[in-house]
Design a protein around this nucleic acid. Structure first.
Lengths: 425, 425
DNA sequence: ACAGTTTCCCGTAAATGC
DNA sequence: TGCATTTACGGGAAACTG
């Protein structure tokens, strides 16, 4: 009879952090014949949960409230609990929650609502409970918790299977990829296209990607590390989602970030384009990084690809990404800085694509000269001995002003580790 | 008989933040004849403080402990309270603490210790209490609280005058300047020299600075805003101290930051030096900023001074200050970037002074090209029409790549507001 | 409306537990 | 010892409260 709405973390329902306030609301779906007395509702966390195996929590703050008539709806009774807060139960005896089998973000909990009332001499007990909840103690556990919520909702319709992660089912790639795209459309405003999803599928499934609908295990999705990397597939993907949310929203929504593209595909795409054509791609080797790769032609006709060291949230909070693209310079042999980025793949002039997104920061602090940061890469001219385009008589750059690149890299070489994700579609 | 040690905030004793743990220790200075029973000590916060006028706090956690023999000292009894935590008492009736007269950082509180024991049928009560304490609820109040602690310690020897800020005495500039220098030597490792203190004195006292020992009021020191600025003298000075602690420690300790020097004095000093001579100075107009000013000679023999927009903690956490000095470039008319900083005042070659402090960040992320940020200012050539030093046939900087400075400033002009701090020593 | 003050809580670092 | 998890709390921002 009741329909429990759910507690919230910022935009992530069903995840509750200990010590942080959350809100929940219950509505009585039947109208009561007599409402001449107060109907109290009590919420209990982890009710009837047997001790052992998992942690248990309780509601720190006031957990009883009186139902009231909703003014805006059709007059049914409802109650909203606010400022609820969770704390872990500590056991005196040895039984410590979370015994190794499941990680804390795989533990499922629940919030129960109880009410008892009497109508015409008849005592009626009402009880209902929430969908499974994940309890975390630090925001660093939010990605793991959200992975659990996604997997549960994707793969079961049961309202309360708290043992779900004892033996979690696999997910078909088709349905999983849909969920992944939803994440991006929900949290970043634009979902993933076929090509992007294909790259993710390959990364996750390796050679099985060609199968019509390979089943992905929970472990492969969120628990095992990607071979050769210290993070799981979902951790990696979520770090990118966070990067977009905080630093790349307009660029992402304009569809200027190809993002998920293998290094091989990147080359195939750029090879035939004008020199100075670049594309934007998320780092596969580090969490939450974005890089650009551009193509150059040496005078002996060979094609060179360069990728800049990925920008992470720290760098991007010092300088917005569009400004990085606008101002990026390469200095070769300490001579003349030049911006190698000319056309966004396939052939959009850089300023045409990013012009509206540049942050013109005039910063009129009167007696001072405005100053801004500029991203620069320094390279030695390669073995192919590029001639100096402007051998100025007195070099404007003092030699030794920068630490020289210890090595010049003309070709972008894949890491040597044997991961499954270096295939080409 | 007891000697109370004091609770701590990071390096700032006598200031306690609500909800944050603190520690205190009491020692019994006389040896007891019989110690065959446990001697309990109880701590009470704001004991005997009459309600009204000021906020009152209490200790949330366990406040009673048994004294123990100190193993390392001469066997006297002592007890250390850890994990103490403060919370404000809320009154049901209208009496709300802090009634307008004093700001919360001027309220003085105290921590009391009580013990009661019986020797040979004689009951003895022991009680002692701490020096006055300031209670804050957010770190943003720490500077204000520390100002109070300094003023109290500077101007009274009373152990417990909680009404001190009801009518705070003035401080002689001589003793105050000593305290200010101590702040820098304690928290930044190097104190202030005569010239720096003279500039501060002038800033605080205006024309009175010449008086042999002008008295500074508490209000002028920490409460009133500096004329024309939205912050008090101490807030300004403390913001600089924080900037040094977090971002400028080595540079400050090498004595490379003149820091406190008026804009007039700056010019006098730089005027006679080589072009490219620069000095480092803290911003007077903004909290926690540092700038450099360098001198240039126009070809018509005139002397020009340029000051860069001050760097604040945000910028400095993107790029360390020494690297800013190393890499700073000025672009005139979008042509050729040049670093105008050559000699640290009076005549130390830049790299000789700062060489050891540069952060060479090779950042060997293999397949990528390292990238770093560089601070740049862009200027139009001035009305005196500086000829282009290198009119390259194909300008390497694309025109319009930066937002142009709306105005070129040859002379650094003081703000027009009538503050007292624009005098010359 | 507003300024002084407190609360809230993310995100990093440190502590803790296993 | 190392990893998983929790605790601590600075710091920015929102909420509070006269």
């Amino acid at each position: 009879e009741k329909q429990p709405c759910m507690p919230t973390h910022p935009q992530k329902p069903l995840i509750i952090k200990t010590g942080v306030q959350f809100t929940t609301k219950v509505r009585l779906l039947v109208k009561l014949p007599e409402v001449d007395y107060q109907l109290k509702v009590k919420t209990t966390f982890d009710k009837d949960l047997p001790p052992g195996r998992v942690r248990q929590f309780f509601i720190l703050t006031n957990n009883t409230k009186v139902m009231d008539i909703e003014d805006y709806s059709n007059g049914c009774l409802s109650v909203e609990f606010r400022h609820l807060q969770l704390k872990e139960k500590k056991y005196i005896n040895g039984t410590k929650g979370n015994e190794g089998l499941l990680s804390v973000t795989e533990e499922l909990h629940s919030l129960s609502f109880e009410a008892c009332f009497t109508v015409q001499g008849l005592t009626i007990d009402l009880e209902t409970c929430s969908l499974p909840l994940v309890v975390i103690s630090n925001v660093s556990q939010l990605p793991g918790g959200w992975a659990s919520v996604m997997w549960y909702n994707l793969l079961t319709d049961e309202p309360r299977n708290l043992a779900f992660f004892g033996n979690p089912p696999r997910a078909g790639w088709t349905q999983l990829s849909e969920v992944l795209s939803w994440q991006f459309s929900t949290f970043a405003g634009r979902g993933l296209n076929k090509e992007q999803l294909a790259m993710l599928g390959e990364k996750l499934l390796g050679q099985h990607a060609s199968c019509s609908d390979y089943q992905v295990s929970w472990s492969k999705f969120a628990k095992e590390n990607i071979p050769g990397k210290p993070f799981s597939f979902w951790m990696w993907l979520d770090s990118i989602l966070e990067l977009i949310k905080k630093h790349l929203l307009p660029v992402w929504n304009e569809n200027y970030i190809m993002g998920f593209v293998s290094k091989e595909m990147e080359r195939v795409l750029l090879k035939a384009r004008e020199p100075g054509t670049f594309l934007l791609r998320f780092s596969e080797s580090h969490l939450g990084g974005i890089t650009f790769t551009w193509v150059e032609h040496g005078e002996n006709g060979d094609v060179k690809f360069n990728s800049v060291e990925p920008y992470t949230k720290n760098r991007l909070s010092a300088l917005p990404f569009a400004d990085i693209i606008r101002d990026y310079k390469v200095i070769t042999d300490g001579v003349v800085p030049e911006n190698p980025l000319k056309f966004l793949y396939p052939d959009i002039p850089k300023d045409e694509a990013f012009g509206r997104l540049y942050n013109s920061q005039p910063s009129k602090v009167h007696p001072y000269i405005p100053s801004t940061l500029i991203p620069i890469s320094e390279m030695r001219s390669s073995a192919s001995s590029t001639p100096r385009s402007c051998p100025s008589p007195e070099p404007p750059m003092t030699p030794g002003e920068f630490d020289m690149l210890s090595e010049n890299l003309c070709f972008d070489i894949d890491t040597v580790s044997s991961n499954h994700n270096e295939k080409q579609t």
